[in-house]
Every structure is written in structure tokens, then in C-alpha cells.
Design a binder for these strands. Sequence first.
RNA 1: CAAGUGGACUAGAUGAUCGCCCCCGCGUAAUGGGGGGAGGAAAGUCCGAACACCCUUUGUUCUUCAUGGCAAACCAUUAGCGAACAAAGAAGUGGGUGCUGGGUAAUUCCCAGCGGUCCUGCAGUAAUGUAGGGUUAGGGAAAGUGCCACAGAGACUAUACUAGCUUAUAGCUCGUAGCUUUAGGCAAAAGGUGAAAAGUAUGAGGAUGUAUCUCGAGAUGCUACCUCGUUUCCUCCCGGGUGACUGGGAUGGAUGGCAAACCCCACCUGGUGCAAGACCAAACAAUGGUUGGUUGCUUGACCCCUCAAGUAAUCGAGGGGCUAGAUAGAUGAUCAUCUGAAAAAACAGAAUUCGGCUUAUGGUCCACUUGGGCC
RNA 2: GGGCGGCUAGCUCAAUUGGUUAGAGCGUCUCGGUGACAUCGAGAAGGUCACAAGUUCGAGUCUUGUGCCGCCCA
Length: 112
Amino acid sequence: MLPKPQRLTKEKDFERVYKKGEFFAQDFLMGKMLKNNLNVTRFGIVVGVKISKKATKRNRVKRRLREAVRLKLKDIKKGFDVVIMVRPEIADKDYHEIDAAVTKLLRKAALL
RNA sequence: CAAGUGGACUAGAUGAUCGCCCCCGCGUAAUGGGGGGAGGAAAGUCCGAACACCCUUUGUUCUUCAUGGCAAACCAUUAGCGAACAAAGAAGUGGGUGCUGGGUAAUUCCCAGCGGUCCUGCAGUAAUGUAGGGUUAGGGAAAGUGCCACAGAGACUAUACUAGCUUAUAGCUCGUAGCUUUAGGCAAAAGGUGAAAAGUAUGAGGAUGUAUCUCGAGAUGCUACCUCGUUUCCUCCCGGGUGACUGGGAUGGAUGGCAAACCCCACCUGGUGCAAGACCAAACAAUGGUUGGUUGCUUGACCCCUCAAGUAAUCGAGGGGCUAGAUAGAUGAUCAUCUGAAAAAACAGAAUUCGGCUUAUGGUCCACUUGGGCC
RNA sequence: GGGCGGCUAGCUCAAUUGGUUAGAGCGUCUCGGUGACAUCGAGAAGGUCACAAGUUCGAGUCUUGUGCCGCCCA
């Protein structure tokens, strides 16, 4: 799990990133990012019902994504709000594939 | 051995690294230390309750009018039978339940029983009875309405097509007799239709009628009606049972099915739901809505053990235990080893709480049923 | 968390208050027609009425349970 200050929690924060954020994508991952004028980078992870109707599978995907992001936190540039979204193919991927995709995604966004 | 049904138990272990949530009367300048951290279904939301607020009624107590002064502000309301506390839910538009007794906070749930029904065995000529097992939404059809397709003559006010008897009429014929046409009446035992044919069924004997077969007579099958025996249901009487029901007897009687068709009867039911509600702050003249936060939030119809009551569901007493409480939402990720056929081993993620029901599902064990093999 | 609705042919929809063999349009296939195609004409195939159980003589229709899809409430 991410430390609490580095989570995106408020509905309004998500709305702001959705409307004004810069879009990028890689494989089965998508993201939007926006400067937040803080000295930390905050992450929000969105896994919708379309990924799977089973709550257990969605939770598994979210945990793996968070873990992949958490292990890279100290190398990530500070001062952004990032929302990560997923496509349905992620349901069959194991942790190592997700980890590799997250690395490529963050490099593409120039956060890493 | 295989399959099915029912029941009980279980839901990987250990270690390493990196993390998250809650608690601590452990501790610090800070870093830290310790403890706890998803399910049997957490699911579906099909029921029931707790709890909260609102509505109505009643009772008790307190007060005799606090804020504000009728509106420029996003919306609504704003001067009155006021406020607080407690108890109750009358009426039944409507909704729900429906054999009996018990359990429970309560139920459409659970337990035990009664009746029906199905299967197997036994008894009997048969109807039927009886033992075991399964299953059962099971009040009322002599309160009323409605429906019963197709087929069939007729389908609940029964009914006359074929065959039969009979009256009238007209025709053929020499003819009072015979045959035929048309109209009406009688009769429900035969034929054929259907889920059902008019309403208890069945056996024996008599009797009547009829169909088929062969040489007139006989044989076989069905049979109105009568007698006797057994039997279903209704009514009444006497027993048994808390009761649903049931045993015996009597004279009298015979009422088609469908209420998961309308309906009738009996009983239950005020409404909304933690997105309930409460508090703090912001804004407003005030209150509410609104926005942000706190709370409600986990000690509870709780769990475990022993003894007692009860056929059981369940419950009484004693002892012990504390077992998630999040809020973009924790309870994890990766690797290694072990058990294992397989650890990528199923189904699946708490959101106010609890009790049921239903559905999904890996493994182990037990009981029963069916089938096969061996002795 | 709470509330509500739907499911019939490949697609879009019917089925008259339980009744005989579930229909229509589009689409598909075959034949005709054309040098070939379209339009057109003729014909045919295609349904576990979402699934299961029950009530009934009889169920797409009634009852109950299940599954799937969708909508509403901050």
C-alpha cells in the first residue's frame, strides 16, 4: 500500500486531473498527470467494473499496481498528481508483466 | 469400486525482504517497541428483527415566550394547540400469511406431529389396508361469480348422433299390415369422444338387456336393477388426543374439477431507512438543505467449555474469552522451502448490526440409496 | 447500501387475460429472372419461449426460486 500522503483521495482531485491532465498510455495501462504545486507526487488507481465483475479480481489488480508503483516511489519526480487507469486485458497478467508495463508507462510520462 | 442424496469438519504451513489500517496507562527530541487485522458463504437482497428519525394518539412535567423583525444574497420554510420525556399503533384503501403444537426478538425461518401424495415390500379376487422411505404453498368449491380448449350428441341448468319404443303427418302399395319422409315425446343399460360423462368404489349371487362366435342351443365379454359382504366421503352419537386428527357405532344421505381464477373467512401489518440520525465549523436574519470534518462503529438476541430441562428446535445455571472497524476505502506483494497429483488449490473481499433462506465452491470423513465386481 | 424493470428466430418486436402445430418484418438459403448484379416473383430453413421446480387435464402466459442484462437514489 502507498503511504497515505502519496494517495489521491478527494473526488475533486480526481475531477481536476481528469479535466486538465495530460494523457499518456502504454500497453494495457493509461494515465493522466497534472502539476499539483506540492513537494510529493500523489497516485490514484482506477479499476472499473469492466475489468471484471468480481470484486476479488479487481482488488488483486489494484494491489499489484500499487505495489509496482510503491517500489519506484523514491525514483519518481515530485510535484504531480497521477491517475492510472487500466484496460480489461490486465486481468490475466501476472505481477512481473504489470511491473514492466508500469516502468515503461512512467518512463513515457517522463516521471522516472 | 462408481454415481447420487443428506449431514459434519476444513479452507495450506514456515521463513526472508519491502509495505498498509487500528489499538496500547510502552516510549522518544525524532526514529521506534508490542498486540490485532475478511468469509463460510463477507455474495444474491428473498424475508425477519435491532437501532434511528418522522407521523398520529394518549399521559406526565416544564414554560408563558428565547433568537429575529419580514428579506439584495443558491433553494425552501418561518409565529402556531410551545418544549421535553414516556407509552401505544385504532382504522384497513392497500399489502402479507394460511393443517396442528412448540421454539424464537421476529419471520415466508427452525423442530416435532397430522393429513395428502409417490416409491418399495406384505395382505387381499379387487376396491383397499398396512410397514418403511421420499415429498408436500396443506383454510373455504352445500356464499356468490367465472373457466373447463380440441374432440364429442352432450362439459355442470347436463345431453338424444347411431341403435330402440311411441304419437301425429305425408307418400308408395289392392290392403286395417309393411316400408319410407317430416315434426314431437319417452328412455341414459350399448357404440364412440375426452383429463373429466353427472358422481363412492369393489367382489359374490340373482336378474334384465346387449355385442361377438358357431348349425336353432350354447359359450364368452359388458350390464340398468335387486340382495348380501367389504369400502370412500358427509351428518349424528360414544371414546382417545393440548390440537391437527383419530378408533368404534348408527340411521339417513351422496356434494365433478380449478381459489399459484375473482373471491370469502381468520390472523398480522403506521412510514422511511446508517445515503437513518446526532454534533462541530463555514455561509445565511434564523432553521433546514448545501460544503468540510467528527460521530453513529463494534461488548453483541456474541463465542467456547461443563452440568441440568426437552423426542427435537431451543433454553436455564456456572466458569472462561474479547475475536477487523476501513472511508478513493487497510487486512498485502515478491521469493524460497515443506505437505500435496496440483500451492496459478476452488468459490470468493467486511461497509450499521444480528437471525434465517437461497445460490457459488476445492478437500476430508460419516450415513443412506442405486448399479457393478469378488468371496 | 437501498429501490425498480426486462429476457420469445441471427436482429427488432407480437401472441387478444391458460387451449390444439408460438407468428410478423428485416436478414439467411434455394429456385426463377439477367450477359452479370440489384430491385422483383416463388419457396424453404431457422425457437431448450433465459434456466429449474410447482399448480393445472393442459403453462410462452399463473406461482416460487435461480441466472444474466439494464435503470434510478449522494
